[in-house]
Design a protein around this nucleic acid. Sequence first.
DNA 1: CTGAAAGCGCTTACAG
DNA 2: CTGAAAGCGCTTACAG
Lengths: 327, 327
Amino acid sequence: MSIQKIAKLAGVSVATVSRVLNNSDSVKAKNREKVLQAIKASNYQPNLLARQLRTARTSMVLVLVSDISNPFCAELVKGIEEQAEKNNYRILLCNSGSDIHRSRSSLQLLSGKMVDGVITMDAFTQLPELTQLIGNSPWVQCAEFADSGDISCVGINDIDASRELVRHLAHSGHQKIALINHDLSYKYAQLREQGYHEELNAHRLAWHKIAYASQLSFSAGKQAMQSLLESGSRPDAVFAISDTLAAGAMSAIEQAGLQVPRDIAVAGFDGTELAEMVSPPLTTIVQPSREIGREAFRLLLRKIDAPESPSQRVFLDWQLSVRASTS
Amino acid sequence: MSIQKIAKLAGVSVATVSRVLNNSDSVKAKNREKVLQAIKASNYQPNLLARQLRTARTSMVLVLVSDISNPFCAELVKGIEEQAEKNNYRILLCNSGSDIHRSRSSLQLLSGKMVDGVITMDAFTQLPELTQLIGNSPWVQCAEFADSGDISCVGINDIDASRELVRHLAHSGHQKIALINHDLSYKYAQLREQGYHEELNAHRLAWHKIAYASQLSFSAGKQAMQSLLESGSRPDAVFAISDTLAAGAMSAIEQAGLQVPRDIAVAGFDGTELAEMVSPPLTTIVQPSREIGREAFRLLLRKIDAPESPSQRVFLDWQLSVRASTS
DNA sequence: CTGAAAGCGCTTACAG
DNA sequence: CTGAAAGCGCTTACAG
């Protein structure tokens, strides 16, 4: 079923049908009626491929989610979605799993002109490769940062947030504060680690220990905590750079016959609902996840509408939320 | 940058360029070389819109996720993704939020020929409307069922699984087993409720009580549990039809100053990682989520490749996993 | 093995 | 207000 058939059915030209479809111009009421009739009668649906090929506009953006199972990512996506909907954009989610091959494959949607822009969450160490793939198509980096100023990005000040969390632990009297981090290929991981060190120094706490989780999952957090428990002197507090990791850490602590927070305090990061689901509930840094997502879309739209507009780096407010896991 | 430019650059016809691009036919080695050279030199990327318009094949399928934050959904998606990847298909995720308007909007991708088929997870009560939108495009319903046999679907036998879970609770000596269900617009919700009743009857347990959660979330589960606690005689066990709801129930019980499982046993459904994250860990029905996803894609691919092939209803195996929350 | 040409289904100046 | 025609960037018989 094509616009041609409709035109024939309605006894007008394809141009007129197209005009009705785009409710543009002024089509004579009678003709509009005939066209509408024909469309309804034949259950016609416009071919988006053809339309978008012709107009070079798709009103779709690609969102490369690093891990769809991560509740923080899910919140970001919902924020992006929300803002996109307001602007009559549709988002296409691709779960990259932080895998560059998958990212590469998904980005063909961009180079193939099926989307107007892309929001990524990949590690900043992969930006050079992404840059090459994305070229200068509209692009925003979400909840992760680039070193240079070429790419728009949005997130929070990770160093400050990290320091505030460690400060809270130190003020609560903890002396041996460990860090569960993950992949340093992420800028935010580096920054939070930096904040951790800076704040320890500020409190003249010499003891420090870091375990790296293989991914941002419960089981990886558990494993990381186990390795911390096995190796030499035991921490009296643990700061995990994501709630999911923190939940894993709590589980490992419990399994070792210890108690949170009595034996070891645990703090997370992100402020997902998960932090309230575990018991005891988790002290964490609440990121404005939805708003980060919304802002990411806003930045992207700006790039789409004005390709020459300068890139921006947006830092949003965060909050320390103290709960039972550290007190 | 188009195929035309490449042709000019390489000094061949567009047909030849196209042949190289699709590494079809036998193009003379020298010409192939020239084309490849030109492609590299100009960093050419084929326009997918044009190609797909021409071939009427996209190698993409739409996945309408009911709730991206639900860990069970996330697992399904990963299964679908995995199988799609094996078949050189790409999946486009749209988070419908079980909202028919969003589903409708996303389905324009189908009617607009941007995808070859669709996998949905919507409630069976919405199938009539979906059917109208989808027509007879390739379609598979995932982890939810239709009453009629027109649509391929894949999931588990919810009645059996539900009965087994209730049987376990009854055998453990529980007399007052409550159910936390959600929206009965889902077939699986109806079936699990049916199983619940059947098994109570089998054990001559007259006491029964059902609370309906407004959605499949932690907080909705918590609320539902609170309402159960407030209303009359207290249950000694609760069966929540999803792990997320069960986690919420546990939180409500704890907040009421009661203990799991001593005062009230709690069981979930789905077998997500969440069941291991809460404490005590959750007794649950383990669904083969990944495999459900994979099978959904297999069924869809069959429909795409052979549009006339009959619809299938696939039921996969599940397992009761008993943990500390009920013993 | 290769090229000229038709056509996928739209939109949009252009002329009337 | 409307229609004929060009063109978006591809692929694919068809003829050579």
